[in-house]
Simulated assay, not measured.
Amino acid sequence: MNNENFYEKAVRDIYEAIAREKTVKTLTARHKESIEGRTSTHEIDIFWEFADEDITYKTVIQARETTTLAALFAMVRIIRDIPGQTVGVIITQPVYQKDVKDMAASAGIILYELIPPVTQDVVEQVVDNVRINVDKDWVKAEKQRVGLGDEPVQVTNQPKYAFLYDEQGRLLDSVQGIFDSYGKQRELALVGRKQSIVHTFGAPVFLQTNHELVPFVKLTSIDFDLELVNANELPGEEMVEYILDKVFRFFGG
Rank of each mutant, 00 (worst) to 15 (best):
A71V: 13
Q208C: 01
E36L: 11
P159Q: 05
E238Q: 13
D102M: 13
R64K: 15
V155E: 01
V24E: 01
T220S: 10
E187Y: 06
Y242A: 13
I78G: 02
E16Q: 15
H42M: 02
K58M: 02
S34F: 12
P235G: 04
D102S: 14
R145V: 04
G37A: 07
E237C: 00
P152C: 12
D150Q: 13
A203C: 00
Y96T: 15
Q97R: 15
A70V: 03
E187A: 14
E49G: 09
R170E: 14
D137Q: 13
R77K: 09
I197N: 04
Y112R: 14
A63W: 07
G192P: 09
K32Q: 14
L172P: 02
E241V: 04
G192A: 07
T200D: 10
I243H: 09
V139N: 03
R131T: 12
G202N: 13
F224C: 01
T26L: 09
E65W: 00
V60L: 04
T67Y: 06
N232K: 04
T28S: 14
R131F: 07
V122R: 11
I222C: 04
I178Q: 14
G147Q: 10
E187D: 15
R80Q: 10
D166A: 03
D245I: 06
Y57T: 10
F201W: 07
P83G: 08
Q125W: 01
E33I: 02
D150N: 14
N3L: 03
T66W: 05
T209I: 09
L172T: 03
V191K: 09
D81K: 07
I44D: 00
I132T: 11
V205R: 00
T68D: 02
E33Y: 10
A104E: 07
L207P: 06
A17W: 04
G202W: 00
R145T: 08
Y182I: 09
Y182H: 15
Y242C: 04
P116Q: 09
F224K: 03
V139Y: 00
D245A: 14
L207F: 00
Q176Y: 10
E142Y: 04
K9Y: 12
A231Q: 12
H42V: 03
Y165H: 08
I82N: 00
I35P: 12
E33R: 15
G252S: 09
D173L: 07
F47A: 06
T209N: 08
F224V: 08
L207K: 00
A29P: 02
F50C: 06
R38H: 01
T92S: 12
A203M: 11
L172Y: 01
T23A: 13
T220M: 06
K9Q: 14
R38F: 06
A71H: 09
N5S: 13
Y112I: 12
E65G: 05
Q120C: 04
S34V: 15
G253C: 04
K136W: 04
R64L: 13
S174A: 05
E142V: 07
T200W: 02
G202Q: 06
T220Y: 00
E43N: 13
D102E: 15
L207S: 01
P83H: 05
A63S: 15
F206T: 03
D52M: 08
